[in-house]
């Protein structure tokens, strides 16, 4: 009788310790990767410097779209900007920018200095519309196909590795 209990208790403990051991190696940073595979929300975004609105449904007109959330006050956005400029040369891809909680003056200065990779530039001065895309910090970048499906989501600045990944998908 005692032996049976001992075996049961040992097995439970081994399982618990094994799971705890596995959890040690896990990456604890939370990202909204669950959104991959979902359809992008239908949202009306104001254009950056002209009147009117861009409806995210229009993304279906393009083969691939990269939706990039950025601001002039965000340091990492500066770091990733050259990669966006690089990607903008690819004809399979349209880059739609969302200028996030920014001032127009500073944003324009930023684009003059660093180049403008955006085919379409919109703005979200209060940051509320970005909630529809699951944005919680910037920069964030979402790759969408013409069925409005989210293929990739990058939280934080994209790097050369990400650029290669994106190019591989869009050049197929």
């Amino acid at each position: 009788m005692r032996k049976k209990y001992l075996v049961i208790i040992y097995s439970i403990s081994i399982f618990v310790f094994f799971v705890l051991y596995l959890s040690l190696g896990k990456n604890k940073v939370y990202t909204t990767q669950d959104n991959i595979g979902k359809k992008i929300a239908e949202v009306q975004l104001n254009y950056f410097d002209i009147d009117g609105e861009f409806n995210t449904k229009e993304i279906s007109n393009f083969k691939f779209t990269l939706l990039n959330f950025w601001a002039s006050w965000c340091g990492p956005c500066r770091k990733e900007h050259k990669y966006l400029v690089e990607l903008s040369k690819n004809s399979n891809l349209k880059i739609v920018g969302v200028n996030f909680k920014d001032e127009k003056k500073n944003a324009l200065k930023f684009l003059n200095e660093m180049g403008n990779p955006f085919s379409i530039l919109t703005k979200d001065p209060e940051g509320k519309k970005s909630v529809n895309f699951g944005i919680y910090g910037i920069p964030e970048t979402i790759l969408i196909n013409n069925e409005l499906k989210i293929l990739k989501k990058y939280v934080g600045p994209i790097n050369s590795k990400d650029v290669k990944e994106i190019e591989k998908i869009i050049n197929k």
Partner: peptide, 14 residues
């Protein structure tokens, strides 16, 4: 800490 804990738990159960 986990290894220590495991050692402690297994030996005290024993």
């Amino acid at each position: 800490i986990l290894s220590f804990l495991a050692l402690m738990v297994f030996s005290s159960i024993f």
